[in-house]
């Protein structure tokens, strides 16, 4: 890497919150009255970036420490805890302050008799509320390094969260296959004005209905909600909160054995033992043929033709699309659908 000058990227996006390089291994984000101090560890750039983005997004909504604390704990909740860097964060809530300390970090507020300490431990998050702010200086210890919050103007240029994310992850040598950046049920999405997590493509919040035009639309990591349902030709319905394996004997499939997918038995000799997989990826639903004898077919809404799903990567399902495993048919429906033509009906079970 070159001399790694951290450049100003302020005003490039919708936000102008400030993230400052702190001393040692840390980065400090300050947006309005919300503060986050976070350890920098190679390989944890995505979550570090998300923590920083969360502060910015909460500030952009003019929300307070209580919301910050909620969003940060939500984020930890849905993340692989081993990948969450140590951090401490606080912001005003009511007359006092709400605090989150996670991992190998300690936040010290006040001094002397007034002193209050909040300590995180590995895998454990401390969430607290202080009714009245202790007087005196504040400091934090992150990974054994003591840091003080001072009052002077920043001596360095601010950087953006995306930049931090980039610089701490870029130099990392790819020694072992990196896990998928969005693991498990964690996806990038947007919060509505009332703090419900949504598909970034939505016009209206899928939980409360408010227009998404009112939110700041920053993409943050969150727990993926249900993506919709598959309806089988006999009226069976499967909620897309998990991967699914369809076939005559799907229980034998590795994904089912490990518990990462739900088996669906289709008792029909035109269907292979393990016929196809339905895999959730980000906000997409993908169908992958599992080497079936008769193949897997899809048909887009409004189209007369069926198309065979190519082996390997499979096909992304769009709302309204029909699927055929042998002689059995299914249809994908989603509350997130914004424009679907349902003119060709799903054939009833024969």
């Amino acid at each position: 890497m070159s001399d790694h000058t951290i450049v100003t990227e302020a005003a490039s996006g919708q936000l102008r919150h400030q993230v400052f390089p702190a001393s040692g291994h840390s980065v400090l984000a300050r947006a309005g009255d919300l503060v986050l101090l976070c350890q920098l560890t190679a390989g944890q750039g995505l979550l570090t970036g998300s923590l920083l983005d969360t502060v910015a997004a909460v500030a952009a909504d003019h929300a307070d420490g209580a919301v910050l604390s909620q969003r940060l704990t939500d984020l930890i909740d849905v993340s692989d805890v081993a990948n969450v860097p140590s951090f401490c964060a606080f912001g005003p809530a009511g007359d006092g302050v709400d605090i989150v300390v996670h991992g190998n970090a300690e936040l010290v507020l006040g001094a002397g008799a007034d002193e209050r300490r909040f300590t995180g431990r590995h895998g454990v998050t401390t969430v607290d509320h202080v009714d009245a702010m202790p007087s005196g200086p504040a400091s934090a210890v992150i990974d054994g390094e003591e840091l003080h919050f001072e009052r002077q103007a920043p001596a360095v240029q601010p950087v953006t969260a995306a930049h931090v994310r980039r610089i701490i992850d870029e130099p990392e040598p790819v020694a072992e296959p990196t896990p998928s950046p969005v693991e498990g049920n964690l996806v990038l999405g947007v919060y509505c004005r009332r703090s419900h997590f949504n598909d970034p493509a939505m016009n209206y919040c899928t939980v409360c209905g408010i227009s998404m035009a009112q939110s700041t639309r920053n993409q943050l990591l969150g727990r993926r909600p249900s993506l919709g349902v598959l309806v089988l030709d006999d009226g069976g319905m499967f909620a897309l909160v998990n991967d699914h394996v369809f076939g005559r004997e799907p229980a034998a499939d590795q994904a089912v054995v490990t518990g990462s997918a739900v088996p669906v038995v289709l008792d029909d000799h035109s269907v292979s033992r393990v016929h196809a997989r339905i895999v959730l990826e980000g906000w997409e639903v993908r169908v992958i043929d599992a080497g079936s004898t008769n193949g897997t077919f899809v048909c887009s809404p409004g189209q007369p033709e069926w198309a065979q799903v190519p082996p390997g990567t499979g096909a992304v399902l769009l709302p309204g699309m029909m699927l055929a495993f042998g002689r059995r048919q299914l249809r994908y429906y989603s509350h997130r659908a914004q424009s679907v033509d349902f003119t060709n009906p799903l054939r009833a079970k024969r």
Binding site: I6, L28, L40, M133, A138, F149
Partner: peptide, 19 residues
Amino acid sequence: VTDMINLSTLAPARPVPGE
């Protein structure tokens, strides 16, 4: 990684928790 970030002492936070 830390070298890149270690540009200064801890930059200030305007709202000191005390106030």
